[in-house]
């Protein structure tokens, strides 16, 4: 396939670079999923891992709290504080956020943005309230979507429950309610390493006027090129391939730059 001259023209030409965002899943204050940075003293330490990704060219980080307990939450706050002190790039935190108070705590500990998911599905007005209290630039709405064979359905509760909502309609709604960014995860592609779900990414990206981060399915540098050109994503998030060292952020960026994508 000749990719050199057949890029879908980028809808909006600017010097703004495409962002590559590694995601760290954090449970009880430790990163989960294997990590293959052999030079790390403690691969489970989110602070050390965040600092390493920051040095290696990550444009932002996402920290996802996958603990459900209250003790887990306070441990997570401490991680957020330590990452904020150590790392000089922006980071988003998510996982179980449902109240203004939680957002206030996370932002005051140094998080730049928060992402909400299930709580916003249960009570969409949460998005309006958070956007008006903290500014829409720091409110990310995470949308987990699955292709049912006929439509892209929004999933809640970490992808375990179908909601009946159509992804594109939910994306438009969260945009109108004041979300500053959408993190779109394809549960159909997630973990497959067969590439991002390009069609739904493009549909969402073209129907809202806020940045869209594509997530799920990254397996090689070409997948990132595809999601930025055909998928029209503004940023791409990946976990496994970076953690396991399948490919480095530097290699992804070098490949993108070679193919005409503006990266940092």
């Amino acid at each position: 396939m000749n990719r050199d001259n057949n890029h879908t023209p980028l809808k909006r030409c600017s010097m703004l670079t495409k962002r590559i965002i590694p995601c760290l899943d954090i449970k009880h204050g430790r990163t989960v999923k294997g990590v293959s940075f052999t030079s790390l003293q403690d691969a489970g330490d989110p602070v050390e891992l965040a600092a390493r990704y920051s040095e290696n060219g990550a444009d932002e980080l996402t920290l996802l709290d996958i603990t459900a307990t209250l003790e887990g939450r306070s441990t997570f706050l401490k991680v957020v504080e330590e990452v904020a002190a150590a790392v000089s790039i922006p980071f988003t935190v998510g996982g179980g956020i449902s109240t203004e108070r939680q957002v206030e705590l996370l932002l005051s500990r140094g998080a730049d943005k928060v992402s909400v998911n299930t709580a916003a599905i249960i009570d969409p007005s949460l998005i309006d309230r958070l956007a008006s209290a903290f500014g829409n630039q720091c409110i990310v709405v995470a949308i987990d979507a699955r292709f049912t064979g006929s439509k892209w359905e929004v999933m809640s509760h970490a992808g375990t429950k179908g909601t009946g909502k159509i992804a594109i309609q939910w994306a438009k709604e969260v945009y109108h309610r004041g979300a500053g960014e959408i993190l779109l995860t394809s549960f159909t592609a997630d973990g497959s390493r067969q590439g991002f779900s390009l069609d739904i990414t493009k549909d969402v990206s073209c129907s809202v006027n806020i940045p869209v981060i594509a997530s799920g399915g990254a397996g090689k540098p070409g997948h990132f090129l595809d999601v930025f050109t055909k998928g029209q994503a503004d940023a791409a998030l990946a976990a496994g391939i970076f953690h396991y060292g399948v490919v480095s952020i530097a290699r992804v960026k070098a490949y993108l730059a070679k193919n005409g994508i503006s990266v940092r």
Binding site: L16, T17, N209, P211
Partner: peptide
Amino acid sequence: SDEVKVPHMGWNS
């Protein structure tokens, strides 16, 4: 303007 995505978010030169 709405010709571009707003907010302008990310790394620019």
